[in-house]
Structures are given as C-alpha cells and as structure tokens.
Simulated assay, not measured.
Amino acid sequence: MLLFTGNLAISQTAAPVSADGKKNGKPLHLFIIGNSFSGNAARYLRELSEEGGHPLTIGRAELGGCSLQRHWELAEAAEANPDDPKGKAYNGKSLKMLLSEGVWDVVTLQQYSMLSGDVETYRPYARKLYDYIRKLQPSAKIVFHQTWAYRSDADGFGQVATGKLAQSEKEMWEKSREAYHTIARELGAPIIPTGDAFWQLSSDRKWGYRKDTGFDFSKPQPPNLPNQDHSLHMGYRWNNAKLEFDSHHASPAGCYLGSLVWYGFLFGESPVNLKFVPETVPADFAAQLRKTAWSTVKKIKQSEPGFHGLKD
C-alpha cells in the first residue's frame, strides 16, 4: 500500500490485516534527523506502532538544539575528512555512516525550534540535506517534521526574521507553519503536522492550557506548583528547591500527541482507538489527544493537492 502525500508516495510496509486480525509484513524503516523535539515527538511511537501491528525500525541522528545548518555543516566536515571527529557528532558516527547502516523507507528533517519561524534559516541547508539524503538513500521518502510553538506563557518565542522574535504562541505557530510549508513545497516533500496538532489543542477553549493566575510566582514554595492541566509543554517543576520552567519541550502529553500524529501520518491509520496511554496523562485528555492527532492528519489530506491514500 502507498500513502501519497503531496507529490510523493510513502511505502506502507505493514501488510493488510490477516484473518486473525493481526497485521504482518516487513518493518517500516524510519530515520530521524533532528534534535530534542524529534525525540519528544517520536517518544511513544514504538509503543503505538506495536499496538497497531505495524513493525517499525527507527534510526536517529539527533543533537540537542541542532539546526538544519549545523546538521549540514557536520555532514560537510565528514565529507571533507572522514576521520575528522567534528563530523562524527552522533555518538562517534557521521550522518553518512548512520544513513548507510540500512535501507530507509522514510527520512525526516526538521528545523531548530528557535529558528523555525524564519524561512531564510532553512536555506540553503534544507535543500543540501535533501540532496545529500537522496544520494545516500535514493529510494527513501524525505519528509519534514513540523515542530511546535512554545507554551503561551513562555518568556520568549522563536525567531521570525533576522533580529525579530514572535510575540506569541500563535504567531510562532503561524510563522513556523508558513516556513515549513514553503520549504516543503520547494522540495516537493510532505509534512508531519505535529505543530498544527499542538496549536489545535492549545487554542481549544476546553482542552487548551491556561496559565494559573492564582499561583504566587513571586514567592513559590516547594513542593507547590501552579495548575498545569492540559499542558503540552513541560512547564514548571521543582529541582532541588529551585522552581524551573521549560516552555519549549513537550510534556508526556505533548510527546503522546506528537507520537499519535506520526503514527497517523506514517501508517495512514486512525490512532483514535489505540489503548496505550502514558501513565501521567489522564484518560479523558488522552482521548482528546488521539482525536486531535487524527483530525490534524486528515486536514493535511484535505488541504494538500494530490494527497491520497489515508484511510478515513
């Protein structure tokens, strides 16, 4: 089966359901080039794919805070001198070495979140990496992973132009979405819409996170924390009597949402009826996350010309 997204077709490695209701077939070989955000987004993908009956093999080239530019410069260093330690930044291996360890069906790329709203930071590195991957893995389908905006109460948001930052979660989402779609169109690549799913949930009147205005942030006392119900981001936590705040990275709920989006996108199958839920995510919220993930994937189907093959 083929999952068509835009101008590309992603091979569905999972075979049709057999008579006993179980899927069979060769694993989908997925290679992720990214940073901590890709680690967050695919955190529970293996558990979901196992439950759904889709064998999955995952390879990774991830470095914290790594931009498209840095990934390319590391690849360039390894090409110039394969023995240069600079090019072997991925646990002692180069990107070329990792990509050459197997035959990959899907390879994903993403921008560093702080730069995700500035389309000029993608150029020319997205195309250089795209061409580099295509040379090493000619049959792979190259996909962009759309990252998410920071939490609404963040003390700062991502860059949208040189010297200019977004002023809100909404603006960061809008600008990063525009940048991802612009580059994806230039390269004819599909998009995993994780950022859209985050915004759809965050902007929902019932399910979106709202800052706790009753908490005294000027004099916090451990172990008390503000109410952070429905937060898709890590938010506040105590660390050795110090109140820390992470408005960027995904919470378990955010990681779950990201993994559900990846599942729906990669396998063309609704995750709504899957049973796996991270321990800290309430059941009612988890159900909403599953619905949001699938509705977001279906919107890509409806909005992208030539998008075919997802099961409704």
Rank of each mutant, 00 (worst) to 15 (best):
H71M: 01
Q221S: 14
T213K: 11
E62T: 03
L68E: 02
E50C: 02
K275G: 03
P271Y: 06
P124V: 08
R46K: 14
E47D: 15
E178I: 09
G306F: 05
L68F: 05
L232A: 05
L45E: 04
Q111S: 04
F245L: 11
L63Q: 04
P271C: 06
K299P: 01
F198E: 04
T121I: 04
F198T: 00
G6M: 05
H308S: 13
W199I: 05
Q69S: 15
N224F: 13
Y132D: 03
P220C: 02
N239R: 14
R237Q: 11
E50T: 09
S202R: 08
R177S: 14
P282E: 11
Y180D: 04
S203A: 12
K164N: 14
D83R: 15
W148A: 03
D229Y: 09
F198L: 02
L28N: 03
T13H: 10
V103G: 10
P16D: 09
K26L: 15
G52P: 00
R70K: 15
E62C: 04
G21V: 03
Q228G: 01
N7C: 12
G25T: 05
K96F: 12
R70W: 10
Y209P: 03
T121N: 05
I133L: 02
E120K: 12
A154Y: 08
T147R: 01
W238A: 02
G21K: 12
W207R: 08
P16R: 09
H233F: 11
S18M: 10
Y44H: 10
E304M: 10
Q12C: 07
G59H: 06
F217Q: 09
N91K: 14
P226M: 09
L28H: 02
V261G: 03
L48Q: 08
G87R: 01
A9M: 08
M114V: 14
F144L: 08
A42E: 06
L28W: 06
A154F: 12
G6E: 04
Y209M: 04
G254R: 05
T5W: 09
W72E: 02
L8K: 14
G306C: 06
R70Y: 11
H71W: 00
R134E: 06
S100K: 09
P252G: 03
G254F: 05
G52R: 04
G156P: 07
L266K: 02
G117T: 00
D196K: 03
Y122P: 01
E174S: 10
A253W: 03
R210D: 00
E186A: 06
S152R: 07
W199F: 14
T162M: 10
M172Q: 15
C66R: 01
A286I: 01
P82S: 10
L56D: 02
C66Y: 01
I58H: 02
